[in-house]
Write a protein that binds this DNA or RNA. Structure first.
Length: 404
DNA sequence: ATTCCACAGGAAACAGTGGTCC
DNA sequence: GGACCACTGTTTCCTGTGGAAT
């Protein structure tokens, strides 16, 4: 029997079992991992600690606003400082409670407040997930803080998104949060807002700005050189010695540096490249692996976005695919055809216009406004991704099988 | 100079769902 | 069981737009 007839599955399984792993500790290759030393952020760590120090003296710290582009280490620094403070405080019996939420993960104001409530220890019975007026939810939060004399620190990540929700619904939650201390007889409430958007304050009520921004800290972007050092730090802990080629490291830092110094992206690239190299059973990670990782991350993002769309958004993407480069009116006609073929009730053109804008925002299609004189104003859309990705993503959904 | 097209996109209202509270 | 609430997805109505055609 020739060795050529070895079962390919067996061969791969053997290789995986006997092959050396390049990665020692995967945890370190995730951006959410908090390192002992957060490189190049000493000054910011000091500032954050400084403004939260009053807790140790058992008084209420100032509200704090933190700005910085994505991947500048804002959340990591805040989490690290808070963890350290908590360690110290636990030794005394001064009750503080650290509460973290991300506005983007909670899609509604109600959800955000409930998330606070749960972390304060309120059960489903004390605080139902729906049905109450927002003011009632707020009242219950304050009640538990007073009753247990908690000194609560609410960390609100992506607070710009919350500000957006507030302006959309007209509820002055932020105002109430910032002024909660005036209503609390015992215990206290401190806010730490984290934002990617340096201009979001302009959209806030001036009364909120004055109390929320008692202290402000800006996290500058990382330089390419700094990103390289951050990567080297993680590499030394996460990979076997000499696994990452120098040119690959440089490329990784350069790619992330191009996007306003995003350390998160750099670390992601590194992790995915490591996984690709490991799967290929190579002994080192080279530039090709980094490029492949970048492409994989990009494609993954597109597929996840497409899968997350509701039915009519999906139908619309298919309609755009069939008419690429045409105006809203023509796309609407195409969409109506697609609806007919799939026996769905079509939505109005106004709604479709809005959906097209939403889809454009997520980068799946691109649009350009065209003035055609007497032929009016319209927007022409085309796909920003390969039609193959769309077909591949939707091919398993029975409803689309006849139309793609 | 005026008209007119084919929409863009804002605002408000509405329907429906899933819940609480008394 | 009815009043009330938050929220989402949608429809309806409306104003505004820039340049070709007249």
């Amino acid at each position: 029997m020739s060795t050529l007839t070895i079962d390919p599955v067996e061969r791969l399984l053997d290789a995986a079992e006997n092959g050396k792993s390049l990665i020692i500790n995967r945890e370190i290759l995730h951006f959410t991992y908090i390192p002992n030393t957060i490189l190049h952020r000493n000054e910011e760590q000091e500032k954050v600690t400084q403004s939260l120090l009053p807790i140790l003296k058992q008084s209420r710290p100032s509200n704090l606003l933190i700005y910085g582009k994505p991947g500048t280490g804002k959340t990591l620094v805040v989490r690290k400082v808070l963890l350290k403070i908590q360690e110290r405080v636990e030794k005394s019996n001064f009750p503080i409670r650290l509460i973290y939420t991300n506005s983007k993960e909670e899609t509604t104001l109600y959800g955000l407040l409930v998330s606070f409530g749960r972390q304060l220890g309120l059960s489903e019975k004390d605080l139902p997930t729906t049905g109450l007026a927002i003011s009632e939810v707020f009242k219950r939060l304050l009640k538990v803080i007073t009753k247990e004399q908690i000194n609560a620190i609410f960390v609100i990540d992506e607070i710009d998104y919350l500000a957006h929700l507030v302006s959309k619904t007209g509820k002055d939650i932020l105002y109430q949060l910032t002024r909660a201390n005036e209503r609390l007889q015992k215990g206290s409430l401190t806010l730490v807002g984290i934002s990617n958007d340096l201009t979001f304050k302009e959209r806030l009520d001036p009364r909120v700005i004055s109390s929320l921004g008692e202290e402000e800290i800006v996290f500058p972007n990382y330089t390419v050189e700094q990103i390289r050092e951050i990567l080297e730090d993680r590499i030394s802990m996460a990979f076997m010695d000499g696994v990452l080629e120098k040119s690959a490291l440089n490329l990784c830092a350069a790619m992330a540096g191009r996007e306003h110094g995003d350390a998160r992206r750099a670390i992601d690239l590194l992790r995915v490249a490591g996984e690709i190299a490991e799967r290929e059973q190579t002994l080192s990670i080279n530039e090709e692996h980094i490029r492949a990782a970048a492409q994989k991350i990009e494609e993954n993002k597109e597929v996840v976005t497409l899968q997350s769309y509701p039915l009519h958004e999906k139908l619309l993407v298919i309609a755009v695919m069939k008419t690429s480069g045409l105006s809203t009116g023509e796309i609407y006609t195409s969409y109506k055809n697609v609806c007919k073929m799939t026996r769905q009730k079509e939505l109005t053109q106004r709604r479709i216009t809005q959906m097209l804008s939403d889809i454009e925002l997520s980068g799946i299609i691109t649009g350009r406004i065209i003035h055609q004189g007497i032929h009016g104003r319209t927007k022409k859309f085309k796909l920003a991704i390969s039609p193959e990705i769309i077909k591949e993503t939707f091919k398993n959904e029975i409803i689309f099988q006849d139309i793609i």
